[in-house]
Design a protein around this nucleic acid. Structure first.
Lengths: 149, 149
DNA sequence: GTCGGTGCAAATGCTTTGCATTGAT
DNA sequence: ATCAATGCAAAGCATTTGCACCGAC
């Protein structure tokens, strides 16, 4: 039985790069080394991250990027639906890899910062019921569960 | 039949003032006109608010407060459990009156921006089940339902 | 009268932007 | 060769803080 999470390079990393590249081209933007490396860093981290962590991670791996470029790339990745901002209460913005997941229901390990996408069919029922009770129709939702060992 | 939302002074406003006053005294703080008026403004608004909106509301009603005092009062009200920060994706912090409510489950009217605190016992069960399925124990959660007419 | 509170203005810290230079196409 | 992207430093903006004066207790 092959390991499930040790080989993201083929199944996850490559397609995401392609998605990003394609999206950039479609918008008339360029696929630069900086943008590729920022996405790499996000994929390698694979947990909630902040802009300056990417700068640090990349610097540690010997690649210098400016904060400005990281922030600009983060915006592009959001537009492409590859990452999503997580509504934390903190001042600094937090993001997660969102592409190809059900990014609305998140289980967040508060010890490690690891984020697991979860889902539950009942949830939709509850959400619809709560909205209807107030005369509204739900069109989306977000759930964050904070948990630890 | 009396109007429902025009008489908060007796049922809601008075107790909250008392709670705040009592809490301030317990912590060795003072109950000042500024702090009273900030809480008034929050109660009158009775929807999601931001710090600078309170400054404006109070200025409109002829009461001048500094931003600094509003921010300091917001912190005190959070500590007292009277308001809570709402986890939005925006840069500016949003808060709601939370006292005596279940502030973790929010129904957000995307037409009007109105935020309604809701709750559902099943939700806790789902959250606990999802956490347990990943070997974790949930300690809190947040749900935001986006809905419209 | 004593401290804690207030307003102001300056400081902070994350994020954005202007501009000259660099580089992907 | 062109036009967008980059890095840097400066600007922006919400929030916090230092300090002199003020006022609730």
């Amino acid at each position: 039985m092959p390991p499930e999470h040790d080989v993201p390079s083929i199944e996850i990393l490559a397609p995401l790069c392609a998605v990003f590249r394609q999206r950039l081209k479609a918008e008339g933007h360029k696929y630069t080394p900086e943008r590729a490396r920022v996405l790499d860093a996000i994929i390698e981290r694979d947990r909630v991250f902040q802009a300056d962590q990417l700068v640090d991670d990349l610097k540690d791996s010997g690649f210098r990027v400016s904060k400005a470029t990281v922030y600009r790339t983060i915006k592009l990745l959001q537009d492409a639906g590859i990452i999503q901002r997580v509504p934390f209460n903190q001042d600094q913005a937090h993001y997660i890899l969102a592409y190809g997941r059900a990014p609305n229901d998140l289980l967040i390990n508060t010890d490690t910062g690891e984020v697991i996408a979860v889902s539950d069919p009942e949830l939709e029922a509850i959400r619809d019921r709560l909205a209807k009770a107030h005369g509204l129709r739900a069109h989306s939702h977000r759930l964050q569960i904070f948990a630890a060992k």
